[in-house]
Simulated scan of single mutants.
Amino acid sequence: MDPATLIGIVIAFGSLVAMINLEGSSVGSVLLMPPMLLVFVGTISVGLAGSTFKDFLHSVKSLPKAFTAKPSPPAESIDTVVNLAEKARRQGLLSLEEDAGKTQDTFLRDALQNIADGTDGDELREMLDDAIDTKMKTDNIASRFFQQLGGYAPTVGIIGTVVSLTHVLENLSTPSTLGPMIASAFVATLWGLLSANFMWLPISNRLARLSELEVDRMTLLMEGVLAVQAGSQPILLRERLTALVPEHNRGTAKAARKPGSDDHLKSAA
């Protein structure tokens, strides 16, 4: 689990609580049910209205991934491909069919099975490219949905403030209550801005970044297995794949793996 999103959101709300306390107020002054209900329910509702129900369900199911997903280090994918290259040079491409049956990664499994079946390299590249494009489109649905919520939330908050201020104007005959009522009216705008910038937009950006890393991993595997099919030397293949990964993101594999070990297939999932 990569806790970056959770830590960031907690610190953001923590800074808000600290500011409220330092100003001598209380958190309860902003925890008002009516404006919060309008902002959260209204924002999600208009987000649903601007999408399809299937896309909405997909986005909701993708939400936990923003907090729990842990990107696979590129070093693991590189080790996987290099081990496959070593095995292919020793036992031939047909031996990769055995590895295809062991891996839990559907993308890698399909690629290895097609290599074992003798699929042409150009056709295999086209097939894998299509799979990557589909992955990008699928992930973009959830990211775009939460980005839209981040755009709707502030406006919904303003709507809540306008409604509350209308109620304030109806009670000008009681000046003693105007101060608290006006303060409560702006809570809707506050929650609209907070939910957009502390929740929806960070979640959208997190899902987009996770998708980028996954697509990079799939691209790395694609280039690797195509090189294996072409008979590339394992040492040169490792150097080539390593050069495709930004230095700060290369990482290291969890454990060294012996050539031909089955563990590298499990780690690729």
Results as ranks from 00 to 15, higher is better:
residue 262 D to L: 09
residue 72 S to H: 13
residue 100 A to L: 14
residue 88 A to K: 00
residue 56 F to I: 08
residue 212 E to I: 02
residue 132 I to T: 09
residue 220 L to R: 03
residue 47 G to W: 06
residue 201 L to Q: 15
residue 212 E to F: 07
residue 167 H to D: 12
residue 233 Q to T: 01
residue 52 T to P: 00
residue 24 G to V: 02
residue 2 D to M: 01
residue 249 N to P: 11
residue 140 N to Y: 05
residue 242 T to F: 05
residue 260 G to N: 09
residue 68 T to N: 01
residue 5 T to R: 13
residue 201 L to E: 09
residue 169 L to P: 12
residue 237 L to W: 03
residue 130 D to S: 12
residue 12 A to Y: 04
residue 155 T to P: 07
residue 180 P to G: 06
residue 227 A to Q: 10
residue 171 N to A: 11
residue 89 R to M: 11
residue 140 N to A: 10
residue 124 L to N: 08
residue 68 T to I: 06
residue 35 P to Q: 08
residue 183 A to G: 14
residue 216 D to M: 14
residue 145 F to W: 04
residue 174 T to K: 04
residue 186 F to S: 15
residue 163 V to D: 03
residue 248 H to C: 07
residue 44 I to E: 08
residue 46 V to L: 14
residue 48 L to K: 13
residue 239 E to C: 05
residue 19 M to K: 09
residue 91 Q to E: 01
residue 110 D to T: 14
residue 236 L to N: 08
residue 145 F to Q: 09
residue 107 F to R: 04
residue 257 R to W: 01
residue 216 D to K: 15
residue 250 R to F: 01
residue 69 A to M: 07
residue 121 G to V: 01
residue 1 M to F: 14
residue 127 M to C: 02
residue 87 K to M: 13
residue 5 T to A: 02
residue 228 V to N: 04
residue 224 G to M: 00
residue 71 P to N: 15
residue 103 T to M: 02
residue 202 P to T: 05
residue 15 S to K: 13
residue 178 L to Y: 12
residue 131 A to T: 00
residue 103 T to W: 05
residue 93 L to E: 05
residue 266 K to V: 10
residue 37 L to S: 08
residue 255 A to H: 12
residue 111 A to N: 02
residue 49 A to Q: 13
residue 250 R to E: 06
residue 142 A to P: 08
residue 212 E to W: 11
residue 64 P to V: 00
residue 146 F to W: 13
residue 116 A to T: 06
residue 174 T to S: 02
residue 148 Q to R: 14
residue 107 F to M: 08
residue 62 S to P: 06
residue 79 D to M: 06
residue 218 M to G: 10
residue 228 V to E: 00
residue 118 G to W: 11
residue 170 E to I: 14
residue 36 M to Y: 12
residue 154 P to D: 03
residue 179 G to W: 15
residue 23 E to V: 12
residue 24 G to Y: 07
residue 137 K to M: 07
residue 55 D to I: 07
residue 215 V to I: 08
residue 255 A to G: 14
residue 204 S to K: 01
residue 161 T to H: 06
residue 261 S to I: 04
residue 129 D to E: 10
residue 103 T to D: 04
residue 116 A to L: 10
residue 186 F to I: 15
residue 56 F to H: 10
residue 250 R to W: 00
residue 85 A to D: 12
residue 84 L to E: 00
residue 41 V to P: 10
residue 6 L to C: 09
residue 233 Q to E: 01
residue 267 S to Y: 15
residue 240 R to K: 11
residue 75 A to P: 05
residue 204 S to H: 03
residue 140 N to Q: 13
residue 209 R to I: 08
residue 184 S to N: 03
residue 217 R to I: 08
residue 38 L to C: 04
residue 116 A to V: 15
residue 24 G to W: 07
residue 112 L to I: 07
residue 92 G to Q: 03
residue 243 A to I: 04
